[in-house]
Design a protein around this nucleic acid. Structure first.
Length: 423
RNA sequence: GGAGAGAUGGCAGAGUGGUCGAAUGCGGUGGUCUUGAAAACCAUUGACCUUCACGGGUCCGGGGGUUCGAAUCCCUCUCUCUCCGCCA
């Protein structure tokens, strides 16, 4: 949620930035500011009425104490009209607040200055390309065929016991997946992130805190009986660790990492996009989350991007980094870098990580603040990224490293897998 | 699943209708003392809205009600804990 004070003080800038998303926000922003104005004047009026009513009550109490019941009762009559007035104003206040809130949650985050204006993925900027496309022999296979050939993943079994999009990993496939999780976690810990194991289900308040609710309700699996949501990413439980928290400035930045399965309903996808591991309802991901001071957040974003890039390099994967344009960024993000690895047999880029700075958009909802040196509280910035999402990394590893002898395991993973080749 | 208890400031814990935003202790911060530290002593120490400021207002789990006045009484929801049952 955008900060009201920001809209108030930088109205034109906000509208201009939102236009990078191809969003015409003028009307909404003006409506918000008008409601904000109304709200404040209404509250001033309400405060005055309550102040008078409070002082009358005190007087009445005093009079009763002194045994002047007669005078007290006269004053009592006076409070009746005040009471009515305050009730009226309070109702009005609530209405205005609701209207304001409803409008405010429709506005996405304001893109950072560096973010290019654009409608969709076509306008994303390629920032960096690392490595080269591996030269594969004739007849190279896509990962789902390799997975079948070497008995690594059984998609049919997953359909049988659950449904499409829930693969069963087995044998060296399962071990490779586990090795990747451990490798990523260890690398993240080494880079200063503290490991967490959060719950895989969250309550409504948490879904709201990170912005999945109310707008993306359909994306999450919901357990109606207990009103819990299966997490679509570790971002949700981890960021919510800091909901309603005031952090001392000396403890910032806070860096967390967590491995969790992720659950996404992903309604409406089809075709080659959902083939094999390309898009799943359940997948594994190691996430990194940082809470920082506002002035430090963009430096930290660069650090996180460098760290994620380092992971892909260690795995020897050919990848590129995109800075998303306004229209392709997530609702809550101010700047996002996507990482895509080259899938050699499919001959396409696959997104394996998305690293974002949310500035105060999440912390405003979360009420996540820090106490500065001056003892004042202000909103933190939150950032997160995948480090990394497993299935597509696995897909690229299988495809890019295939040869007549089998699938070669990258050196850095061998200590974790315990084998060098899948043959 | 059954029975009971409870939800108060960073924590512990008082407070059953009127100067209670809330005693007290611990913790935190500043100071006195000390070569330094500890101890002791003194002071200070919640969040939010609004105002240039003075000030005003809101908040004792959430929501509603009674009352001139609610942390305190009533209703309701949520959550937590204890015991029993079941169970990795």
């Amino acid at each position: 949620m955008l900060e009201l004070s920001y809209l108030r003080e930088h109205k034109d800038e906000a509208i201009k930035r939102l236009s990078k998303r191809k969003l015409q926000a003028q009307t909404a922003v003006e409506d918000i500011l008008r409601l904000d104005e109304q709200r404040r004047s209404n509250q001033a009026e309400l405060d005055a009425v309550l102040a008078e009513s409070n002082s009358l009550s005190k007087e009445i109490g005093q009079l009763f104490k002194e045994g002047k019941a007669q005078e007290a009762n006269t004053l009592k009559d006076k409070t009746a009209s005040l009471k009515e007035k305050s009730k009226e104003l309070q109702q009005e206040q609530e209405q205005i607040r609701h209207a304001l809130e409803n409008l405010l949650v429709t506005l996405p985050n304001t893109p950072h200055e560096l973010v290019k204006e654009g409608a969709d993925a076509h306008d994303n900027e390629e920032i960096k390309v690392v490595g080269q496309k591996p030269g594969l022999a004739e007849g190279a296979k896509p990962h789902w065929e390799l997975a079948d050939q070497y008995g690594l993943i059984d998609f049919e079994l997953g359909v049988k016991i659950t449904g499409a999009g829930f693969p069963v990993y087995k044998g060296k496939g399962a071990r490779l997946q586990r090795a990747l999780i451990n490798f990523f976690l260890e690398q993240n810990i080494e880079a200063g992130y503290e490991e967490y194991q959060p719950p895989h289900f969250v309550n409504e308040a948490s879904g709201f805190g990170t912005g999945q609710l109310p707008d993306k309700e359909g994306q999450m699996y919901h357990m109606e009986k207990d009103n819990l949501y299966a997490i679509p990413t570790a971002e949700v439980p981890i960021t919510n660790l800091f909901r309603d928290v005031i952090i001392d400035h000396e403890d910032l930045p806070i860096r967390c990492t967590a491995y969790t399965p992720c659950f996404r309903r992903e309604a409406g996808s089809y075709g080659k996009d959902v083939r094999g591991l390309n898009r799943l309802h359940q997948f594994d991901k190691v996430e990194v989350v940082t809470v920082s001071k506002p002035e430090a957040s963009y430096g930290i974003l660069e650090e996180m991007v460098a760290h994620v890039g380092g992971l892909l390099e260690k795995l020897g994967l050919h990848y590129r980094i995109l800075r998303l344009c306004g229209g392709d960024m997530g609702f809550t993000s101010a700047m996002t870098y996507d990482f895509e690895v080259w899938s050699a047999a499919q001959e396409r880029w696959l997104e394996v990580s998305s690293v974002s700075n949310f500035e105060t958009y999440q912390s405003n909802r979360l009420k996540l603040r820090y106490r500065g040196e001056d003892r004042k509280t202000q909103l933190c910035h939150t950032l997160n990224g995948s480090a990394l999402a497993l299935p597509r990394v696995l897909a690229a590893l299988l495809e890019n490293n295939q040869s007549a002898e089998g699938i070669r395991i990258p050196d850095v993973l061998i200590p974790y897998t315990g084998f060098e080749i899948i043959a």
